[in-house]
Nucleic acid binder design. Structure first.
Length: 1129
RNA sequence: GCCUCGAUGGCGGAACUGGUAGACGCGCUGGAUUCAAAAUCCAGUGUCUUAGGACGUGCGGGUUCGAUUCCCGCUCGAGGUACCA
């Protein structure tokens, strides 16, 4: 009775499908466990061996958890919107839905034949209207929300409207656009509906904004950064320009801090967390204003406290009185716009506490100059609340209440703008954000982006020409070029000076294109001694480089080590280390009022519009150019049919080709564009959503995927909660995995999901690399001079021949060690081909010459033409493509040997191996075991099928254990101690390995177990029955078949996992390694219950010990009972 | 540049918490079976060697009775990221 995997696997796959063996219930007494794979994009190429790697791992885990009594949710689906199908549609006219459907069918077939325990009843496809209905629904939820920074959560936009109608937006602390107009409740009430909508749009979590994009006119589309190589499009090499476009954005920046904080509670790989942290890019620093020196005006009005006063302040701040401490306790907890600062200067007065955003001062009563203070504060628009020390100490609750009241209803501040405008000096200011305010005394110049708005205002007459020329030059360079060019140092002095806010020194203002207008404030304070880029700039233009580091030599380069250097030449910062200096200087900056400490995030709001066809349509129509949401009860808004999938001729997205794409607000349906009247029928949005839209919350939808009434029901989501184990590639680190965390937090805020992190544990499976094959194509190089045929003006320098040389020959050409005769022969062939090629050329075309040198270029060959000895099937290669039909091969020893290199497995490298052939030849169980056996799950590893025979013969050996005389048979005899030991050793190891995702070692251990049981000739049910269960997660088909043959009628998949019993592993003796100075020299078997002393005695008495010692007396003998003996001396 | 991960036989890899380096598999060598092959089974397989041993986990140090494992300093490779001020 042979192990017939074909029949076994086919039968069980059918059984599982028919019996819905792996369907998960949404309510169960069992504890839940949710195992998820990152769902695949169904490409036309089908699955390759890299895909199943993660799926097999998660399947093993899911199956193991079923044996451990869990109700396991293990779903699968397709991320089926995407570019390749659209590209294919553009080329062939085939509707992407049709190609996608066909690709999914292939994927499904391939997945099924590997025997995964997916619950297919929950399958989702992001391109299915029944699914994207919910993607549209979430979009609407985002639109209907704003982010409240005071409560740190998303809230309904209607709440915001209420606030606006009560008090305007002066005090609202919400995430919003940068440029917000301040208005009062009265203003709000007077605004038209349209104006109100425009304002609300600036607060919504998804909003329209002008975004700069990489526009490729030739392709009529926007490109991602990585689609651009060297300033041109990767596909086609077309020019790319920066273009402003009105697009949907998602206010992910509102969640920056929570996305950072959330990482503490999830068990995700550190490198992945690091790249998210990096992406969010939190930096602490300060915003500092530098006043621009107007001609002839050097007097800067800053408040100068004496050094003594400052010191006194610091002391006071660190030793507050009891009442002060109490009050500060009340105030310090206030966050966001209600944040209070202590010991702050307003004008020339030092106040106890101030909330700057709400213009409220809290002070202790009884100060000498109270009246004057109040006058001044109120004139500056502050309201003042005073308490006596007793009041605070007696009843801090009442005090807190009073303060809250004051914050809520401040006296109407005199418009700040007014005061500013009335100020006599219309001084210009340059704001910079710096992460190193501690080095501010090292500032010797400033650099503005050439586009900076102040450049034209501050440039002096003398410098005007130079500056204008430079701006013109810069305008020609794309931002990408500017970023890529690190070496060129360029810039121009504007002739203007800023005033150093601390020292009052004149600081030159330059412009330079290394400063980008879009980053930060578009200006930097340059500290050449502490920043290499500034250093190079200063050196290049001969600008002073003051040193503000204690004992650091900066004659050659800037000081890069911030942690180990102390500040010098910096007034009150002298002698301080980095962290202390940071705190001190921010305190000073705030106190003196020319800046404030600020936390900056690199994270930008996520652009959510794509000018594509094959994506989710927005549930949005436009009324007077303003976006309107379609009521959720009319969802889904289904993707319209179009005649072609390209952008329209006037540059609109592909949906602009749709003729039935207008919204009728009366009938509530999509109608013909001809009917648009902008009264009841309006145009619909033409963009579609990006790839990450459909994948940002699919894990929640799996919990209740058949629900047509809700995104996910409360019962389901409360039962399943979150993903317990999520497996997928690390390439999604900052795309899918960051955006989906953002959506989850949003859904959590809205009470739709119960947890704000959706995956407790995440594992990145490593990439499977392919082994590419290279052939070496010869080209003729450097034609002989003077050989141009008559009447030919010029000769082409290079001729690409159709001659391919074997690997070794290519190496010899490279080294110049090629045999002279062979070289002459190849050169002759090349020239013969060149002559033939010349005949085909038009007369006036440049001709190929007579070449005297040859060189080669490696070209990828399809790996399927190459056998295991790297020998190329030349006929197959010739038939591969038309251009190789007449290829000639120069062989070595009668063979054409290809070069091999390990690279990422990719269709374009022709090194893709798909799992079908392996399933065919060895079966799914072999494939599953083999992929796990390759090595640790997380590591990337090359795909080589050479080891597959090992796991295949293992399965055959396993099968044989259950066979006696060519028939299935097991004995009911009692197992021996040795057999039980093998079994329990294996149970222990396998459980340990699964817990640690170390699947490669469990496969090894199965092999060891089977080898041992074979040696013991074990055929006992008591051993073989548990063994079948143990192996089921890894090789489910054979396990089911064995289980059935053992006499069971039910599937093995939910049978209890065998229980490990330590008693079978207890040993009575131990083979001690006896080492001398840490090196093992021989082994000695001794009873386990021997004491330390007895062991030492026995070892010392041994003849080999004496031989090793050779008469010496050991200095020390280390005995670790049960482990080792080490003799030193 | 910065961040992260890694480096062990011919190859993939193993080694619990510092305790026998190279498990398991591939490949290779020899043998059995066979007319032969496939399949299967048995034995061997880190390097050097004077056959007793000696040396060996990228390199150089350190801690320790003992280091692939811990610490310090490098080298090389992979992935991510970037004039982010």
């Amino acid at each position: 009775m042979e192990y017939n995997f074909k029949e076994i696997e086919k039968n069980w796959q059918k059984f599982w499908a028919e019996n819905q063996t792996f369907k998960a219930e949404n309510n169960s007494d069992k504890p839940k466990y949710y195992v998820l794979d990152m769902f695949p994009y169904p490409s036309g190429a089908g699955l390759h061996v890299g895909h199943p790697l993660g799926y097999i791992a998660s399947d093993i885990y899911a199956r193991y958890k079923r044996h451990k009594g869990f109700n396991v949710l293990h779903p699968q689906g397709y991320d089926s919107f995407g570019l390749p199908a659209e590209q294919y549609a553009i080329q062939t006219g085939q509707h992407p839905a049709i190609t996608t459907e066909a690709n999914i069918a292939t994927y499904r077939k391939q997945l099924d034949q590997i025997g995964f325990s997916f619950d297919w009843s929950r399958e989702v496809r992001t391109s299915d209207p029944n699914y994207y209905k919910w993607t549209q629904w979430i979009f609407i939820q985002l639109f209907e929300s704003y982010y409240c920074k005071d409560t740190d959560q998303a809230r309904s936009i209607t709440e915001l409207e209420e606030v606006f109608s009560i008090e305007g937006n002066t005090r609202i602390n919400a995430a919003c656009d940068d440029e917000i107009k301040i208005f009062t409740s009265k203003d709000w009430k007077n605004y038209s509906e349209e104006e109100k909508q425009k304002i609300l749009l600036q607060y919504r979590l998804t909003f329209l904004s002008e975004t700069e994009v990489n526009w490729c006119p030739a392709l009529g589309t926007v490109l991602a950064n990585d689609e651009i190589v060297n300033g041109v499009s990767e596909r086609g090499g077309h020019t790319v320009v920066r273009k402003k476009m009105k697009q949907w954005s998602m206010r992910i920046t509102a969640y920056a801090q929570r996305l950072l904080d959330g990482m503490a509670k999830i068990d995700w790989p550190q490198p992945l967390k690091d790249s998210q942290t990096n992406w969010i890019g939190r930096s602490e620093g300060a915003m500092v204003s530098f006043k621009v020196m107007s001609a002839g005006n050097t007097d800067n009005k800053k408040i100068n406290l004496s050094f003594k006063e400052i010191e006194a302040l610091k002391v006071k701040r660190s030793n507050p009185s009891k009442a002060e401490a109490e009050l500060w306790d009340v105030l310090r907890k206030k966050k966001g716009a209600s944040k209070f600062r202590t010991k702050y200067t307003i004008g020339t007065y030092l106040v106890d506490f101030v909330c700057l955003a709400k213009n409220t001062i809290v002070e202790f009563a009884g100060k000498e100059d109270e009246v004057a203070r109040t006058d001044y504060f109120e004139s500056e628009g502050f309201s003042v609340v005073r308490f006596s020390a007793d009041e605070v100490l007696d009843n801090s609750v009442a005090v807190a209440y009073k303060i809250d009241n004051a914050l809520q209803f401040p006296i109407k501040p005199k418009s700040k703008k007014k005061t500013k405008i009335s100020e006599p000096d219309l001084e210009l200011k340059i704001d910079v954000f710096t992460t190193r305010p501690d080095t501010i005394f090292g500032v010797s110049f400033m650099t503005l982006a050439p586009e900076h708005e102040l450049v034209s205002e501050i440039t002096t007459e003398a410098q005007k020409a130079a500056v204008e020329a430079y701006i013109k030059k810069t305008a020609k360079r794309s931002e990408l070029e500017r970023m890529a060019d690190v070496k060129t140092i360029s810039g121009v002095f504007t002739g203007a000076y800023a005033l150093h806010p601390f020292t009052g020194k004149k600081v030159q203002i330059w412009i330079g294109d290394y400063v980008l207008a879009n980053y930060g404030t578009g200006a930097v304070m340059a500290v050449p001694c502490g920043d290499q880029r500034d250093y190079d700039f200063a050196k290049h233009f001969n600008i002073e480089i003051p040193n503000i580091f204690e004992g650091v030599d900066i004659s050659e380069e800037a000081n890069a080590d911030k942690d180990n250097s102390k500040i010098a030449n910096s007034d009150f910062l002298n002698g301080l280390a980095y962290k202390k200096a940071m705190k001190t200087v921010i305190f000073e900056i705030e106190k003196r009022g020319f800046g404030y400490g600020k936390i900056n995030y690199r994270l930008r709001d996520a652009v959510f519009s794509r000018q594509r066809y094959w994506g989710e349509p927005f549930p949005v129509y436009y009324k007077n150019g303003l976006p309107q949401m379609i009521d959720v009860k009319h969802l889904p808004i289904v993707l319209p049919e179009v005649v072609k999938y390209l952008p329209t001729e006037d540059g609109k997205p592909p949906l602009g080709n749709a003729t039935t794409w207008a919204w009728d607000v009366e009938k509530n349906e999509v109608v013909s564009n001809d009917l648009i009247n902008n009264e009841t029928i309006f145009p619909l949005e033409l963009n579609t959503m990006p790839g990450w839209a459909g994948s940002s919350s699919y894990f929640n939808r799996y919990m209740d995927s058949e629900n047509t009434e809700e995104f996910v029901s409360k019962e389901s989501v409360n039962y399943w909660q979150d993903v317990d184990l999520y497996i997928g590639g690390s390439e999604h680190a900052t795309g899918h995995l960051l955006y989906s965390r953002f959506w989850q937090k949003f859904l959590f805020d809205k009470g739709i999901v119960p947890v704000d992190e959706y995956a407790k544990k995440l594992i990145n499976q490593g990439m499977i690399t392919g082994t590419s094959a290279f052939v070496y194509r010869v080209f003729g190089n450097a034609p002989m001079s003077g050989t141009a045929p008559k009447n030919v003006k010029a000769v082409r320098g290079i001729f690409t021949s159709n001659i391919f040389v074997s690997k070794e020959i290519s190496e010899k050409i490279d080294k110049g060690t090629l045999d002279f005769d062979l070289e002459t022969e190849i050169i002759k062939k090349v020239n013969d081909q060149a002559k033939i090629a010349n005949k085909k050329l038009e007369k006036e075309e440049t001709k190929f010459g007579d070449y005297q040198k040859i060189d080669f270029i490696p070209i990828h060959s399809d790996v399927s033409f190459v056998n295991s000895s790297d020998e190329l099937d030349v006929e197959a290669f010739k038939n591969w493509r038309e251009e190789y039909k007449d290829a000639e091969f120069v062989l070595e020893d009668g063979k054409y040997i290809v070069g091999r290199e390990v690279e990422k497995m990719s269709k374009s490298k022709y090194n893709v191996v798909n799992p079908d052939a392996i399933c065919e030849e060895y079966g799914a169980d072999s494939l599953r075991l083999f992929e796990m056996f390759l090595g640790p799950l997380e590591q990337s590893k090359p795909w080589k099928t050479s080891g597959i025979s090992g796991v295949y013969s293992f399965l055959k050996k396993l099968w044989k254990l259950y066979i006696v005389n060519d028939a299935f048979s097991v004995s009911d005899e009692e197992p021996t101690a040795e057999e039980l030991k093998t079994l329990h050793k294996t149970i222990k190891k396998v459980e340990y390995d699964i817990a640690n995702f170390s699947f490669n070692t469990s496969v090894s251990n199965f092999m060891i177990a089977v080898n041992e049981l074979t040696a013991l000739k074990c055929n006992k049910r008591a051993i073989l029955e548990p063994l079948a269960i143990l192996i089921e997660p890894y090789a489910p088909h054979i396990a089911e078949e064995l289980w059935k043959n053992l006499g069971h009628s039910e599937s093995v998949s939910t049978v209890d996992f065998p229980i490990f019993e330590a008693k079978y592993l207890v040993e009575s003796s131990k083979e001690y390694p006896i080492s001398f100075n840490g090196k093992m020299r021989f082994k000695l078997e001794l009873p386990m219950d021997m004491s330390k002393e007895e062991i030492e005695k026995a070892v010392m008495a041994h003849e080999k010990t004496q031989a090793q010692l050779d008469g010496r007396t050991p200095k020390q003998v280390i005995v670790v009972p049960g482990k080792i003996v080490n003799i030193v001396g």
